[in-house]
């Protein structure tokens, strides 16, 4: 099965761009200035774009790209926006007029609905790119941060080390 799909879905193209694309968060938000993650990946591969233009990827994404390309990581370019907490779009169903403009804007087809009918976000598929916000004529879409729930809860990095102790002692 895997072998089959490898042949079937084999993509011709630039393996480096592919590796870069695998690191990018696939938000497809276009904040990098390219129309999607793949074009940005190709631009990086060609050396036409910096590695610090992807706010959803965050500093960690930059670090990974730097590692892959063997260059020095650099801080995120503020011109392309700042990283935000992971969110999904939410449509206020009372205000929605069913204009389908957001559906056309969504890069991952995560909005369902037809003309003159209320639209809904498929939260599981929404990447939080915010591209549906500007076209909405009635401003009925808001970004809702994803709340932390049990299955997604993470152990935090333990805070134990040394200098900490000094501050604590100073505080007491």
């Amino acid at each position: 099965m895997l072998g089959w799909s490898a042949i079937r879905f084999k993509v011709e193209g630039n393996p480096l761009a592919e590796k870069i694309d695998a690191i990018l968060p696939q938000t497809q938000c276009g904040q990098c200035g390219f129309p999607g993650c793949r074009p940005y990946a190709e631009a990086i591969a060609k050396g036409e774009a910096e590695i610090n233009q992807c706010p959803p990827g965050g500093e960690e994404g930059v670090k990974k790209l730097a590692e892959l390309l063997g260059v020095e990581p650099k801080p995120l370019d503020e011109a392309h926006g700042a990283p935000k907490p992971k969110s999904v779009a939410f449509i206020d169903e009372n205000t929605c007029i069913g204009c389908t403009l957001c559906i056309q804007a969504c890069p991952v087809d995560a909005i369902s609905g037809a003309a003159k009918q209320m639209h809904t976000i498929l939260a599981a598929e929404c990447t939080g790119c915010e591209l549906c916000l500007p076209p909405c004529p009635v401003d009925c879409i808001t970004m809702v941060p994803i709340p932390e729930d049990l299955p997604h809860w993470k152990w935090k990095h333990p805070v134990v080390m040394l200098k900490q102790l000094d501050r604590e002692e100073a505080a007491t």
Binding site: D21, L24, P25, Q26, T27, Q28, G36, C37, R38, P107, V108, D109, A110, E125, T127
Partner: peptide, 14 residues
């Protein structure tokens, strides 16, 4: 996994 799904959906949309 989420990124892979998004990539797939985006590619399909393209």
């Amino acid at each position: 996994r989420a990124a892979d799904l998004a990539r797939e959906r985006h590619e399909f949309r393209q």
